[in-house]
Each structure stands twice: as structure tokens, then as C-alpha cells.
Design a protein around this nucleic acid. Structure first.
Lengths: 333, 333
DNA sequence: AGTGCTTGCTTTAACGTTTAAGTAGTTAGA
DNA sequence: TCTAACTACTTAAACGTTAAAGCAAGCACT
């Protein structure tokens, strides 16, 4: 059995409370006793039991992170930012992967709360997500990253860090328009999520500003999945009047589209223009040279985590942070 | 305050124990009472407190995963496998990122044990790592994935799942040799880790089998970091007698070398041959077409996690699993 | 000398749960 | 009819820690 505070107390011939006081550096024991207790703790290899601490203090110094796919580079970057900031602040990360299931999002939230996490970072909400409402109502600390629920009835009552997806969508179309394209296919991200929806709104605004017709057959929801994007692109490329440009809601899908384009022996950008979104690491490799939209994903994670921890530690008790990060075009040559 | 078992007990006018029995489906209460208690629990939104459960049962249904860099695709894949299996078996994942620091590995292990994880998956051990010894001695359940401590004094006493790095190293050189190369640069992984060391041993065996001279100036330890590999390649390429092939200990570094080669306006594979290791997702993209060595990284994670959980649950109490996964050459055209 | 304050502890109870032991009340068997 | 066994609970203690209250000894001040 791992030694406890009681074992140390017995050896030092003091009460467990004295040991607790001594080891936590609180005033209430003499320096002599404190040193002796510290030495014994060291000798027996004492390791504090955070489970017991958590139970009594109602603080676990841990946070939960819920993402939809850890294999996706975007979420990996996000997780890296979250882990970094959490670790800096002395919090441990519990990682949950929903595989895009709303039902498991709910299960994970319950589980994390049952496990006593001090707060949750949710990167998976969908439009109208019921989880947000209940977290708000129960005043449980949480921060939304990347996605918003877009539910008017709960607006303004939670913290979030997102990127300016509308501008991103706009920038993408604007760029392609300026290059002379008017047959632009849009490989949309999940249109049940705010990122997909807002990007699409930006796309539409740009198309209307530049007098481009929106051809519904050229818009496909590929749910941020590379293989779906590949399939969709293969199909779009086989149309008699095929698009001359593809704007993809993330780089991952853009890479899928890229495979389809190259497989048809077409050249990028000479024959077909291609744009992604997120500026993942792979995008900048030579001969990938993906034109994309950058947003500093890991910073979203860091910022959101910082906000969450401030919230938990009560320094920003009834302040609500709403951060929308700017996005920027990245063109590689 | 979140409702507890006591609140339910008060409402149902039974003892807390009865509620515990009822909700956990154990025999000892009438079906009528059980149903009533279930209904009340539902009504008040009862959520079991796993912290308290853990404290008394000494089981948290959680495991820790320690990796050295979550931004690295290799570890991402590994983590995906681990998360998948853990989740299937009802375990939660606590994720720790050491950023290659041995000191933080030790800190994380202590922290995870203090948090009551039921077991740990260690993917970061270095040669002679002292952490392994103490885990073994204290009989704490853990599984090593990917790397081994190579410490003869603790051999044979722990479970692991690794890939056959020796064969991988051998295969790489053999392949390049058969293509006619005799000036092969080796961009080594961390030579303080078993993966780097074993790959290097395979490399040396192959070189001696094929009568290739080992030129020490052509071997660089780049610690699995892409930018270091890039820098090293830039330097190697500027030598008067530059190598005609690069064998990299992981794909990540291979991509760094690739940038250096392409930047020198050299062609792969015509001017310079390039090989990686791990077969990360990016390797198979068209125009990356990286020749690499595959090993099914996420399977390593799944297998290791399965072994750990079996260990925890006592089904394989004093059995030691030592799994070495085969590797295979992947050549893309 | 008596009062009050400080120091350095100890004791008790609590956090939310489970486990073990106990106890009424009912049923069954001889 | 008595005992044994079962059912459906309850009570008490425990898991490892901390917070709150208590207390004895020593000291300072009047």
C-alpha cells in the first residue's frame, strides 16, 4: 500500500493534521517538526492522494477537453495549445474523442463532471447543441473553442474563442474571384456546425458581392472528412461543366480534393485552383503548396484554456469572454 | 450543489446504502424500491461521483498516457489507438506531454499515480530510464509502447509493444543499396531512445552485410525533429562529396530533408533518394510519395492499451506480454 | 496574580461513496 | 410451534485528506 499522511503521522508521532499542515507549507507547526515530517515523507516515498484532496476540496486541478477527432491535425494543434496552457497552470488534461457523435459528447460531459474536472473545453458543439444550455444553467465552468451552438436562446451567456469563419469564407471566394474563377466548387465542412455555416455565409456574401452565381450542385457538405472530399471532387470533376476552382472548408478536405485533381492528371493551379482552410503544417510542404487561410489553431487552444482557468480560479467571475480571432490568406509559391 | 446519494436517500426515505445498492444494480433491495430510487435519481439529475468511488474502491477506470509530443503525427496516431481501446473498455484517458523532458516524465508519472489512474502507458522512455525500474518495483500496472529502456537489469519484467526497429533499419538500407546507393546519409532519431538505437543497429548490420562503409559524418542525430533534419540535410547536401540517399528514422524528419533537397533544386528520387519511417498519413500524398516503412502505429496503441487493461483487471495477472510488430517497406510510385 | 494572546499542536467531522456487519420481519420446514 | 433461512433493509466504518474548533503551555501585559 502506498504510504499516506497517517503513516507519516504515526512515524513522526504527530497527528495527521499536523502532517497535512507541514507538507502543504501552511503555518501551524514549528519549523523543526515541519522539516522532520518532510524528511519522513521523502523517506517513505509519500505521494499525495489527489483523489482524496479533490473529494474534500472540490477542486481537482484538471480540465476536460472534448474534440471530435484526435487524428485530425486541426484538433491535434488545438489539443497541443490546450495541453500547453493547462500544464503551465498546473492542470491535468482529460481527453475525450467523440468521433462526431453528439450522444457521446453528452456522455463525456457527464463523465467528466462526475470525475470532478474543474472545467471543460468543448470543441465539438453542433448547432442547437443541448449540452451548452445545461452547462450554462448549472453554472459549470466551460469554454467553447472553434464552434458555437448558434442557439439564440442561450446567446451571450458563455465564453468562447473562435476564428472569424465568415471572413475566412469571404476571403477564400474573393481570392479565387480575383484570379478569374466563376465556377467555384465549395467543399463545405459540416453544415451542422457553426464553422461550416459561417464559412458558407462568408462564401455567399462574397459570391453576391462579386456577382457570382451560386450553383447548388457545386456545394457539397463533406463533414470535414478527407475521403468524402475526395469522392465529391471526383464526382464534380467528371461533370461536363466542371468547376475551375475548389474552395475547401479545411485543409484536410483540400488534400482529398488535391488527390482527385491530380489523379485526373490536371494541374494545380494551372488547370484547377485549390484552396484550403486552417493552414495545417502539411499545407506548406513544397509541391503541396496549398493556398489556405491561417488562424493559429494552437493559439485558440491556449487562449480558451487560459480563459477557462481564470474562470475556474474565480479571477474573472462574472466576466464573459468572446474572442473572435482574425484569419488571413496564405498564398504559397 | 450537485445532488448526492444522500439527497436521494432522504427523498426516498431509505438509507444511502440502499440507494447505492439500487443504483448499482446489486441485489439487496426490492424491485419496487429500486425503481422508485431510479426515478428519483433521474428526477434530481443525479450524477455519480467517481472521485468518491475511486477513493473507496481504489479503481478510477482511467489510464494515463505519456507521450513526448502530441503535435507529432506519430504520437497522434498512437494516441488515437490508445483512446479508442480505452474508451471501448470504459476507461478515461489522461494525456501528458513531456516535450522530451525526462524530468517531466517522472513528474507526470507521480502526478498520474497520485490521481489514481489504474495504469500508465509510457511512450517516452529513454535508455536507462529510471522511471521503469520504480514502476516495476512497486508493481504498478504499466505498458511501454514504442520505446524500451534497454536496461539489462530490469529486462523481462514488464510488458511492451514495440515495432521491429532493427528490421526497419535493415530494410531501409537494403532498399537503398539495391537501388545502387553507397553514399547513404542516416538522419537518425533520438539515439538516447531504443527506437533510434535499434534502427541504427539495423542500419549497421545492413551496411556491413552489403559491404557499405559507414561514414560517421553521414550519420546525424536529429532527435525526431523536422527542423533539425532540415538543417542537417542542408549541411550534408553542401558537402563536396554529398550523399546520394537519405535514410530518415521517421517520416517527419524525412519531410524536413525533402524540403532541403527540393530547395537545392534536386529531384527525388532521380538525384537523391529519400526514405522515411512510420508511414504517416502525409507520406502517401501525391507528389510527396515518400518511400517509407510502415508499422501500423495506432495498432501499437490499441494493443498496448488492451494489454494494460487486461493487466489492471487481473485477467492476465502474472503474464508478461512482449510484442514486437513487424514492419514493411512501402514504396510509392 | 490574573487576563489575554500566541504557538503548536490535537480532535472531530466532513467530502460521497461502498463494504461489512447487523437487524427486523417474513417465510419455510420439520 | 420453534428454528432456520431469507428478504429488505439499516448502521457504522472506512477510503485519504482538510477545515474548523479546541486546548495546553508559555509569554506579555497590567
Amino acid at each position: 500500500m502506498a504510504p499516506t499522511i497517517k503513516d507519516i503521522a504515526r512515524i513522526a508521532k504527530v497527528s495527521p493534521t499536523a502532517v497535512s499542515i507541514a507538507l502543504n507549507g501552511r503555518p501551524g507547526v514549528s519549523e523543526k517538526t515541519r522539516e522532520q515530517i518532510r524528511r519522513i515523507a521523502e523517506d517513505v516515498g509519500y505521494r499525495p492522494n489527489y483523489v482524496a484532496k479533490t473529494l474534500i476540496s472540490r477542486r481537482s486541478q484538471s480540465i476536460g477537453l472534448i474534440v471530435s477527432n484526435i487524428a485530425d491535425l486541426f484538433y491535434t494543434e488545438l489539443a497541443r495549445g490546450v495541453e500547453k496552457r493547462a500544464n503551465e497552470k498546473g492542470y491535468t488534461l482529460l481527453l475525450c474523442n467523440t468521433n462526431r457523435s453528439l450522444e457521446s459528447e453528452k456522455r463525456f460531459i457527464d463523465m467528466l463532471r462526475g470525475r470532478g474536472v474543474d472545467g471543460i473545453i468543448l470543441a465539438t458543439v453542433e448547432k442547437g447543441d443541448p449540452c451548452v444550455r445545461s452547462l450554462v444553467e448549472e453554472h459549470f465552468p466551460f469554454v467553447l473553442i472553434n464552434r458555437l451552438p448558434m442557439d439564440p436562446s442561450v446567446t451571450n451567456r458563455f465564453d468562447y474563442v473562435v476564428q472569424d469563419n465568415f471572413s475566412g469564407g469571404y476571403l477564400g471566394i474573393e481570392h479565387l474571384y480575383r484570379l478569374g474563377h466563376d465556377q467555384i466548387a465549395v467543399v463545405a465542412g459540416d453544415l451542422k456546425t457553426s464553422t461550416g455555416i459561417r464559412k458558407m455565409e462568408g462564401v455567399k456574401k462574397a459570391m453576391s458581392d462579386f456577382d457570382l452565381k451560386i450553383d447548388r450542385r457545386l456545394v457539397v457538405d463533406c463533414r470535414y472528412m478527407r475521403n468524402k472530399a475526395y469522392d465529391a471532387a471526383m464526382q464534380l470533376l467528371s461533370m461536363k461543366n466542371r468547376p475551375t476552382a475548389f474552395f475547401c472548408h479545411d485543409d484536410n478536405m483540400a488534400l482529398g480534393v488535391r488527390e482527385a485533381i491530380l489523379q485526373d492528371e490536371l494541374k494545380i493551379p494551372e488547370d484547377i485552383a485549390l484552396m484550403g482552410f486552417d493552414n495545417i503544417d502539411t499545407a506548406s510542404l513544397t509541391k503541396i503548396d496549398l493556398t489556405t487561410i491561417t488562424n493559429n489553431t494552437s493559439e485558440m487552444g491556449e487562449l480558451g484554456t487560459g480563459i477557462l482557468i481564470d474562470k475556474i480560479e474565480g479571477t474573472t467571475h462574472d466576466m464573459v469572454s468572446k474572442i473572435v480571432l482574425e484569419v488571413k490568406l496564405v498564398i504559397l509559391y
